[in-house]
Amino acid sequence: MKKLIGTIVSLSLLTGILAGCAGTLADNSATPTSEAASKTDAGQAAWPRTIKDALGKQITLETKPKRVAILDFGFMETMFALETPPIAATYAERTLKGFGTLQPYAAHAQVENLGEVRAPNLEKLVELKPDLILYTAEPGHLDMKLYAKASQIAPVVTFNSPDWKKQLQVFAECLGKEKQAEAYISAIEALIGESRKKLSGYSDKTVALLFESGNKGNFVIISSAENPVWFNKENGLGLTPPDAYPEKGETISLEGLAAMNPDYIFLIGSFGSEANGYTQSYLSENTQASSVWQSLTAVKNGHIYYLDAAVRAGGPLSIELGIATIVKSMIE
């Protein structure tokens, strides 16, 4: 039943998302395909424009990009939110079919798969002739050798912002979608405000967001400070983390989770594969059968709920879906 809640929310929310974005799914061009979209971008800064990226580099884009490739699959949601599907991405098929937020697009979006994140198929990328490549500057994920090779193919702009709003804004600057981004941000901020009011009666209940790591009973915590949309009392949902909940993401044991003993637990899914039809997994059988897991307050009270794997990427579509799932799970 708890998984069904997430499924119902996903379907109803994504229907709304599709209604706003369906006009661009079959076309990977950054050029708006409707009169409304054209009006959205009217009056924005002319091209060329110079972008200062996360590495401090100044990249001049001579014209509005029309063939954008991404070397970090986590950027996929932001591209679709701005109605600019990439022409290629790492883990393209796995992301489109594995993220609940992107599954409705999978049958129509023409996104070439560049393979592994750490070893993308650069020969294919050359063949696709992108006019812009987007890449991460996040420590531990940025590969300067890969960056140098990609820069020989097309201009590369790097990003490293955990804040979904800022990421949407800087993407929009590259793509000429500033007004569209601001409209999206305003809508999500309104949703956050409305949802925070609905959840205000649960401020005395503690909440943990996490995902199991490696099926070994360890969990990666979705931290409070680095993910303000969930825990910030003024600008987020205002969820209350349990005592000792880390401000920065870290891995804890099942026993560590038991020491926190939150009232509500939201388990975030892990990617499926082609072999299992891209079905997400949430909790290993060994952990679920553990006496420590069974002793948790949230387990005893039936307050274990499920969030789509896309939430781990922190994109705008998954934030919208995550908010809807959390509100529905806690108050209904």
Rank of each mutant, 00 (worst) to 15 (best):
I268M: 04
T279W: 05
G201V: 15
S38V: 09
L257G: 09
L296P: 06
K3F: 11
A36Y: 08
A183I: 06
E250N: 09
A150L: 04
V9N: 00
I323N: 06
A42P: 02
I265E: 00
Y245Q: 06
G176N: 05
V299G: 04
R118Y: 13
I5C: 12
T101V: 05
A54M: 05
F219N: 06
F266E: 01
D204R: 06
P242H: 01
G43N: 02
A26P: 08
G20C: 05
E320P: 01
F80E: 05
I331F: 00
M79Q: 08
I188A: 13
N218H: 07
I188C: 13
K179F: 01
A183Y: 12
F75E: 14
E83H: 15
L13C: 14
F75S: 06
S151T: 07
L239C: 04
K66N: 09
E116L: 09
S223G: 03
I192G: 07
N160C: 09
F73W: 11
D163M: 03
T90S: 06
I59R: 01
G74E: 12
L210Q: 01
A109D: 09
S161W: 15
A313Y: 10
E116N: 13
R49N: 10
P246M: 00
L11S: 05
N235H: 15
I17Y: 15
S34E: 14
E255N: 05
K205M: 11
L102F: 01
V117W: 02
F75D: 12
Q152R: 09
A54T: 02
S291R: 14
A181T: 03
E35C: 11
E116F: 10
T40V: 10
R312T: 03
D41P: 13
E247D: 13
K97E: 05
T240S: 14
K198D: 08
Q152V: 03
A298I: 01
L142P: 00
S186P: 11
L321K: 01
A148Y: 02
R94M: 15
L199R: 05
L11H: 14
L25H: 07
A92I: 11
G314N: 11
A107C: 10
A298F: 02
A119T: 04
A22H: 11
Q58S: 15
I304C: 06
S223H: 08
A36W: 08
I8H: 10
N28L: 08
P162F: 07
S12G: 13
N28V: 08
L267A: 02
V327R: 03
A154G: 07
